[in-house]
Design a protein around this nucleic acid. Structure first.
Lengths: 118, 118
DNA sequence: CTGCATCCATCACGATACTG
DNA sequence: CAGTATCGTGATGGATGCAG
């Protein structure tokens, strides 16, 4: 489906971006890696609601797409750190504009804000 | 699943945005409505690859979420126009940053640019 | 023209169990 | 700790046919 979108829509840059962000999890992962390197278990905790499977899968795809860097430390117990690549960090403006819009929306719709009034 | 994400992630503005953009189609629809009002069939053509079902479904949800305005003209044959609400237009910066990133990415990866060299 | 209802194939995703 | 493998299910989305 990834290819599908690109084919159907020619080479629209918006479609290209959506394509790499296919799953909602990836956006959240980038959001949480923006502050700095994280370990697998940390991400699993921070990205609340994500299953181990989805986290692994998302990280693998993002690594393949060059958004995320995976660093393995052959110690016991095993330690693996994930961080954003240069390309990954370049998505910060996108994440930020999404955050800004989200805040704007929540201001307009206070009823949608159930908790963490900030 | 819409509620799920919000619950799991508290009230993160990024999650909120993703939540309203759930499907990739919605982003593309907003992109194509940004220039101005469109009719159902026009959208079906422009948002290449989208099925009638998905278009209708997406538009309904976006209308419900207050992103899109639906205007019916009781003529024969029936005429229905869709346009962005004020809230919908407020997403322009988000779409733009996605477009910018997409272009940046395509510059870095010319191989991904198969057609429409621009 | 615009859209709803159905049927159906595929797939995303969660749950669970097992490994280096 | 950080995965991999497998299974089951609900959701996603296309195709088709009908209707206002």
């Amino acid at each position: 489906m990834s290819k599908k979108l690109l084919e159907e829509n020619g080479i629209c840059p918006v479609a290209t971006t959506i394509d790499l962000l296919s799953s909602k999890w990836k956006v959240l992962i980038i959001r949480d890696l923006l502050p700095g390197t994280k370990r697998f278990t940390q991400l699993k905790t921070i990205v609340a609601g994500i299953s181990q499977k989805m986290l692994t899968q998302s990280l693998r795809e993002m690594e393949h797409d060059g958004l995320v860097v995976r660093q393995i430390f052959p110690v016991v117990p095993l330690k693996v750190e994930y961080s954003l690549s240069k390309l990954g960090r370049s998505m910060e403006p996108v994440i930020n504009s999404m955050a800004e819009w989200g805040n704007f929306y929540l201001d307009q719709n206070p009823d949608k804000r159930k908790e963490l009034p900030k």
